[in-house]
Structure formats: structure tokens, C-alpha cells
Amino acid sequence: MAIQLKQQKKGVTQLAIQGELTIYSVLEHKQALSQYLSSAKDIQIDLADVTEIDSAGLQLLMFLKQEALSRDISFSLSQHSEAVVEVLELLNLSKHFGDPIVISADWKSS
């Protein structure tokens, strides 16, 4: 399982996605993540270990954001990995998600 439940208390759910977030895994990810959408009040996703993300993966993140909004769940992404930042920048979606992005100095410029 590429999703790790890091912490769960007082309705705040901290999750970490690891490995690939691509067309090959989105189905699995969606199923795993959907269960939290029905119970949690606050979802925080750690993207530090996402090694690869493609359009499908990005679409899944957009979907989660949309679902959370409609259910009044606060939703945030954190610790974006280099791969994620590159895509968000490319598609001008950083503002859409509205989460602070920390850019590490050792990333090669994209």
C-alpha cells in the first residue's frame, strides 16, 4: 500500500502518499483515500515521497480537493516533492490548491 496513515486524532487525518502517483496506481489510491473522505474533518497529505506524478495523478489530487470542498473538509497538501512541484508549476495549479510549497535548494531547476 502506497498510502501511509501517519496520524489520526481529533478528526485530523495525516496521510502520506509514497511512490508513484500515476495512471497505474490512481484507482488503488482513490479507493484507499475515499474512506477518509467520509470520516475525517481535516485531511493533510504529505507528498514528500511521491516520486512520479502524471496527469491522472494530478487529476486525482484535483478530485480530492473538489470532494473535500463539497463536504466541508479542510484539505491541504504539504511537503511537495520535486516531481509534484514541477507538474503544478507547469499547469499553473499551485494557486488552485493554495498550499505553501517549499522549494528545496538541491532540486535541479525545472
Binding site: L27, S55, A56, Q59, M62, F63, Q66, S70, L91, N92
Partner: peptide, 25 residues
């Protein structure tokens, strides 16, 4: 110069198939 990524037709909840593409640019 500018790019807008939207998914205006993305269904909600279980109807959304993560393997289908809903993205418009």
C-alpha cells in the same frame, strides 16, 4: 504565457473514475 487547468465535467464521489480523463486546458 498562461495556462488554465480545469476539470469542469469531473463527477463527484464514486462516479469519478480516476482512470478516465476529465482534464481541460
Amino acid at each position: 504565457k498562461q495556462i488554465l487547468t480545469v476539470a469542469p465535467e469531473m463527477p463527484v464521489g464514486d462516479d469519478m473514475d480516476p482512470e478516465s480523463c476529465y482534464l481541460h486546458f
